[in-house]
Design a protein around this nucleic acid. Sequence first.
DNA 1: TCTGTTACTGCAAGAAATCGCAATAAAATA
DNA 2: TATTTTATTGCGATTTCTTGCAGTAACAGA
Lengths: 144, 144
Amino acid sequence: MTHCHTTIQSLRRQGFRITPQREMIIETLTQSNAHLSAEEIHKRIKPRSKTINLATVYRTLDLLVEQGHATRLIGKEGKFLYATRQHSRHLHLVCRKCGRAYAASYDGLQPFLEQLKSTYGFQVEAEHVTLYGLCPHCIHPPNQ
Amino acid sequence: MTHCHTTIQSLRRQGFRITPQREMIIETLTQSNAHLSAEEIHKRIKPRSKTINLATVYRTLDLLVEQGHATRLIGKEGKFLYATRQHSRHLHLVCRKCGRAYAASYDGLQPFLEQLKSTYGFQVEAEHVTLYGLCPHCIHPPNQ
DNA sequence: TCTGTTACTGCAAGAAATCGCAATAAAATA
DNA sequence: TATTTTATTGCGATTTCTTGCAGTAACAGA
């Protein structure tokens, strides 16, 4: 709720218009603990606002990502998922083989990110970094 | 060429069948210096093999990623791009705002990856890590 | 509060990626 | 080499995501 308003304030300050659709999308994303697909967000809002369009959901999510209020990642089934950046900060370790996803702490990554900042001037936002590789289960069978 | 055969050998050893389609896809990807979309690969192969189907290209690329011979990343226009893992190892820094992509060295990331390995048993493959954030051009205008 | 500007939405069409299934062909075996 | 098994392909349909456009409504200014 609180962070929901922060996002709205920030968008308004940037000159974006706050429509009922955008409010509902932001609210839905903020209140959820999971990573949601655009489809899922659309489904949840529909009962309250029958005419909300899926394209609007996608466009709003794009805006939120672009403005740094949300992150987009690729879910297990290949669909895009979205979450607020404040939502439980962690690293995603995704197995390229079985698709399993693990949450990991990103303590220890900070020095490297600072190095990137000073070398390239690039400010990495590390809330939802996704790294690919092999999980413990899939390393065992020797496959190279 | 050489690496192309390595990939084919490895797939064969895993019990996958080597079809002309798969050979052409692997060859195309290996010989290209750029990151290619499935569509692009399809387009390049078509002259030589009129009936090759786009779905086959997607399925083969999935296989290559799953088997660790290629990596998949999201291109500037939101399309998926593919590259062999051997192809010029680097980090991708993608600006969430303007979409610009920067190549960066991942020297300095190694200690963190080793930490992940020992903590979670997860073996990150760092050839094509993509990190999102703000590029030097987009940091300036204060937007929070 | 009313009005004008123009960002935003809904709709429908389009593009990108995936899936199911019958036909095909790779490669193991005889 | 011929046969058999079954992984893989092509095709068409489907799903997921994006885009263009005309109508609508947020919000700045009067």
